[in-house]
Amino acid sequence: MTVVIGFEGSANKIGIGIIRDGEVLSNPRRTYITPPGQGFMPSDTARHHRAVILTVLKEALEQAGLKPADIDCVAYTKGPGMGAPLVTVALVARTVAQLWGKPLLGVNHCIGHIEMGRLITQANNPTVLYVSGGNTQVIAYSERRYRIFGETIDIAVGNCLDRFARVIKISNDPSPGYNIEQMAKKGSQYVELPYTVKGMDVSFSGILSYIEEVAHKMLSSGQCAAEDLCFSLQETLFSMLVEITERAMAHCGSQEVLIVGGVGCNLRLQEMMGVMCKERGAKLFATDERFCIDNGAMIAQAGWEMFRSGQVTELEDSWITQRYRTDEVEVTWRD
């Protein structure tokens, strides 16, 4: 049996999870929530994580019913993400690894999402759509890498949603995306927005600047409601995502899709992806907010795979990096 504890804090969530051979023993999490109209700043986010991390660690161990001696390896997010929060979490991971005398493992955050998705859904070799506040990628595995077939050429889809939420002052609690999703359900009028797909890549910055420019005018003139804008934005963004996923599937001959990342728990996105999959006889795998949204267990799970394939990170190599592409990691645990 191999037990791995994972520390995640690359953005505004701080999570610590424990995995024992595919079983999630615990996975507590806290979110740093900012007032409407405001994003989260690195230093404030790091301060939040510092304030709660030991409480979360205690919860993780208690809920799992484990003592530090039961842990085999300490995994932490090496990147990508915001510098200050990453440093905070890595520091704690390094400290406990030395206190407990356990090996360390620096994990790529995106790989964490993919491996957690594969574990929970049992998808075998899916085309992965990874969508979050900082990432938008279409990924498929081949020859020991998770290769990026498509991605955003400017901002991430979650970032586009978050910034739209700030424009019309939608609450960040529990997350801007969740609130946009709820409002979109009440929208009915479809407002035409720019649609930019380039092969397997997408661009969202044009949509954002367009909607930033017209939103207030349209709302104050009564041309449409905020709910209609939420609806139209989701319909447009998600159509683009489904389209590039389908293009990558056709390109790779894949019959499975796995959606991961914070935006991945949006039920409208899952529904649209499901329709596409049905049309081509493919299978959709998705998870709910427990595992889609950043969490500690996903870092533990990727760490578990890496550790079992013989990897460890020496203390002097246990740094963090804000930029760390998914395809930089050699996947030593898959054929």
Binding site: R145, I148, I153, K198, M200
Partner: peptide
């Protein structure tokens, strides 16, 4: 997905799209 444009930006992105598809398809 084609269109007309004289902008170097659009042509650059066209090559970028190819580069990514090329390198991910052919390691």
């Amino acid at each position: 997905l084609s269109y007309n444009s004289a902008l170097p930006e659009d042509k650059g992105v066209d090559l970028y799209v190819l580069e990514k598809a090329f390198l991910s398809t052919h390691p």
